[in-house]
């Protein structure tokens, strides 16, 4: 058997190929110790299914989302324009990313700056692969029959109306999907959006991720599924704060599938 492959757009272009999709990894996907596992899980699934993909590798830069949300429009546009130049240079048509912030920015905000691509969140992409029978679920693996709750990310849910794809994936796992009271359009933020990930919260009586984690723990779920690197961090921190990290795990949707498929 051969090893997993992670081709870059540059390598593809050098050999005259143009992959079907660009997998946009994002900064958390590239640098965050915990979240790198999600990137790796997703890449393994892409390999396994035989999807024609490539990544930008060292040519990728932050989409600029946190800079824009923190008010620094210059910095956002510097990042965005540079990224668009790179992507247009490779004639990118279709982008898949696991990060809802990258997803939102490339999908909704890059067109005004000359970047027009079909942009898909990995939850939607994975759901399609399941529906097309390209991923055949093996029954949920270690989660079989257990309760899993899904935490809606603001930039996937309210920002872009993606509510069902993540849930369809969880349901395909042969587990029990339990909803928090605040879900879908009423989903409570993890506290990291709008560049909050990069600063301490303002003074208050509680941290937002604690409020949300308490709600998730009340469902009695043995795992909290997320579809966003920031949510993953915030919810994991919340679970640790509540000293429940041995009983309740926080996973990205791609990791759940990779586990089911025996890829991790």
């Amino acid at each position: 058997m051969s090893n997993y492959k992670v081709p870059t757009m540059a390598e593809m272009a050098a050999s005259g190929d143009n992959p079907e999709i660009l997998f946009w990894v994002g900064c958390a996907g590239s640098f965050d110790e915990r979240y790198k596992a999600v990137t790796q899980a997703f890449v393994k699934i892409l390999n396994k299914v035989g999807v024609s993909f490539a990544v930008l590798g060292p040519e990728e830069a932050c989409t600029g989302d946190p800079a824009r949300r923190a008010g620094n429009e210059f910095l956002f546009q510097m990042q965005a324009v540079a990224n668009i130049q790179v992507m247009n240079g490779y004639d990118v048509k279709k982008v898949v990313t696991a990060c809802p912030h990258c997803f939102n920015t490339i999908k909704n905000e890059y067109p005004a700056l000359g970047g027009n691509y079909e942009v898909i969140h990995h939850s939607q992409f994975l759901q399609t692969l399941i529906n097309e029978g390209k991923i055949v679920m093996k029954g949920g693996g270690e989660f079989k029959g257990k309760k899993i709750t899904f935490h809606d990310s603001c930039y996937l849910g309210r920002a872009n109306n993606v509510y069902e794809a993540p849930r369809e994936i969880i349901k395909a796992l042969d587990v029990e999907l339990v909803e928090m009271k605040r879900c879908r359009t009423k989903g409570l933020c993890c506290g990291a959006g709008g560049a909050q990930m990069f600063k301490e919260p303002e003074a208050g009586k509680k941290d937002i991720n604690i409020e949300r984690t308490e709600e998730a723990l009340r469902t009695g779920a043995s795992a909290i599924a997320v579809g966003c690197p920031f949510c993953l961090t915030m919810m994991s921190d919340g679970v640790k704060n509540k000293e429940k990290e041995n009983e309740v795990k926080v996973f990205d949707l791609a990791e759940l599938i990779a586990k089911d498929q025996g890829l991790s």
């Binding site: 590239s30 640098f31 790796q40 990544v55 990728e60 946190p66 890829l263």
Partner: peptide, 29 residues
């Protein structure tokens, strides 16, 4: 950080693709 290393965190841009090493070393299941 974003201006100098194109990421909101202070990491070297040249390390951006390091995550792939582990996967590339692994045999496909």
């Amino acid at each position: 950080n974003m201006e100098t290393s194109f990421s909101p965190w202070k990491f070297s841009p040249s390390d951006r693709f390091n995550w792939a090493e582990k996967v590339k070393d692994e045999e496909m299941k």
